[in-house]
Amino acid sequence: MKPALFDYVRADSLDEALDVLAAEQGDARVLAGGQSLLPMLSMRLARPRVVVDIGRIPGLDVIEAAKDVLVVPAGLRQATLLVHPGLERSHPLLAAALPWVGHAQTRARGTVCGSVAHADPSGELPLCLVALGGSVRLASKRGRRSVDAREFFTGLMSTDRREDEMIEALAFPGAKREAGYAFREFGRRHGDFAIVSVAAIVTAVAIEISVGGVNDVPARRVWPRLDGSALDDALNTLAWELDARDDIHADQRLRRDLVRSLGRSTIAEASRCLA
């Protein structure tokens, strides 16, 4: 389990990193915290010609908060966001989900943008970004663009990012007044990959539910304020619609059960937060 050979570039500025990405035509990978990339390199699921280290670029770890939108730059570590002052009030969903992202030891190094770039189907941060209707800010030598999170994730560990682009920042919209937020997850061990994770946002008129760990990309549904057996029916339909698969961690049936039960309890918790 050692990475294959690669060249290493320590970028001093974002421009330098983008130069390498443009020159390598898709054969370069960006290294920030390394908590997703290093396992990919060691397992040789990724064999880039060049690794571009953005860890020393000044200013890439400064959070911007403008008009309730939290702008998380490429170098910001998950552990830093977790202790960001006021996060529980401004972004209660992120505050609830972040402790589930990896382990304390990986959150200390792993970045928020890196987790989104990696786009693991069980990732909590992609799920939150989709649930909140956030956006991904991409940069390349050709310019900058912003992609809606709900269009960014295109499949299993695939995204709309083009080969010469890197995620410069993520924009997480702040909590709406008159909405309740909740996050729940089931895994074999706290910090392991989610077997099923659920984010719920409940308002006076609607339930928004987003489910991770089941499909290749986070799945989102918006329902009216269903309750009782109508909510059970909706969750059951959702559980069957999501194309759950068997793997070594859980079979389809457990995943469907978890969508129903975690869905129910997460929606209930978000409703309590609203009340």
């Binding site: 908590q35 060691s42 382990h103 990986t106």
Partner: peptide, 27 residues
């Protein structure tokens, strides 16, 4: 495990806990 799961290689880098196997020496 060499992919960040087992924790046996945990060390401290600049005061924070970290997996040595998920870090390149050049970093």
């Amino acid at each position: 495990c060499e992919h960040g799961v087992c924790g046996a290689c945990t060390i401290r880098i600049d005061g924070t806990m970290a997996r040595a196997c998920l870090t390149l020496a050049v970093q």
